[in-house]
Write a protein that binds this DNA or RNA. Structure first.
Length: 308
DNA sequence: ATCCAGGACTCAA
DNA sequence: TTGAGTCATGGA
């Protein structure tokens, strides 16, 4: 039987502090709580909820990393009752912190880069914090289309607090992003009342429906063989454009070469780093990113982080 | 009022 | 493929 805590080894370079620094960028984050040196988050049991045992169970976990050698994960509330479920938790956390990535090539690639060299040194060990859950990643991206980040966080929180599950621990409530099944049958007006636009509401419901039916899944997208095919599959869903698809490639499918080129945050970061008096054009971004081929997602992530 | 924000869609060259 | 116009919504 699994115990109440476990460790996950990390490869170097890895800096938990830098990861937490990124994760505290918004005080409006609703899906995890960063304390000094730890993160607390409510996770969903890996097992599918169709096994007739009621709602899928949740685990409240606390993650620390005292020495940057291994993550220490403690179950604060709820606990896997099988090795299979424990593996699900481990898999989620590895995805979340991108633990399976070898960052050495990245560090070497940009060590002397005029633009990224400084950022790579400053953020040494920062991992591309992911969104392992496909539905959460899609909704977060859709909600964040063409709105400022604080508002996007509010929308995400409303979705979580309206359709998600939560537990209370030591007087604080911890939310889990809703499963697609919770939104597959929602009507557009209900989501619009959360201040999502009609188009976003429709897209959030449509993706929920496709995921509930099994037509859309993370495994299915990865099973298409290459990320371009996954992007194509995503883009043909109404409300999901190239930015959203690349965002999902980057943060959920874990494609290191994903490149959300239309991202205004990326554009502003480049503008700032290069002291430009305007935002770069798509062509200029492509040219700038050319030397970082294969690592566009990390370049984007580090540039994002440079804004905070 | 006006502009911006981690866009998408349509339609035209 | 690229570009202009349109839509949509809150926040500064």
């Amino acid at each position: 039987m699994p115990g109440s805590s476990f460790d996950l080894a990390v490869s170097q370079p890895f800096s938990f502090a830098r990861c937490l620094e990124y994760m505290t960028r918004s005080p409006l984050e609703s899906l995890y709580e960063v304390r000094s040196g730890s993160v607390i988050r409510l996770l969903r049991a890996a097992r599918e909820p169709d096994s007739d045992c009621g709602a899928p169970r949740s685990y409240l976990v606390d993650i620390t990393c005292p020495d940057d050698q291994a993550l220490h994960v403690r179950f604060l509330q709820g606990k896997p009752d099988s090795d299979e479920e424990l593996e699900g938790v481990k898999r989620y956390i590895r995805e979340w912190f991108d633990l399976d990535r070898d960052l050495e090539p990245w560090q070497q690639l940009v060590a002397d880069d005029p633009v990224l060299g400084k950022l790579a040194a400053e953020f040494y060990g920062l991992r591309l914090i992911g969104i392992p859950d496909l539905y959460e990643a899609l909704c977060w991206a859709i909600a964040g289309q063409q709105v400022n980040l604080p508002f996007a966080y509010k929308l995400k929180a409303r979705l979580a607090e309206t359709y998600g599950k939560s537990v209370i621990w030591e007087g604080r409530r911890y939310w889990r992003f809703p499963d697609p099944s919770a939104l597959a049958g929602a009507d557009i007006a209900a989501l619009q009342s959360l201040q999502l636009t009609r188009a976003k509401s429709a897209a959030i419901i449509e993706t929920a429906s496709r995921m509930t039916s099994g037509e859309l899944s993370r495994a299915g997208l990865l099973g298409l063989g290459d990320f371009a095919s996954a992007e194509q599959a995503l883009v043909h869903i109404r409300g999901i454009g190239p930015w959203t698809a690349n965002y999902v490639r980057m943060r959920c499918l874990r494609d290191p070469s994903a490149f959300p080129i239309g991202d205004v945050g990326l554009q502003n970061a480049v503008r700032s780093q290069l002291s430009m008096d305007r935002k770069p054009t798509p062509a200029e971004l492509r040219e700038l990113f050319a030397p970082w081929a294969g690592w566009e997602a990390y370049a984007t992530f580090y540039l994002w982080h440079s804004l905070y």
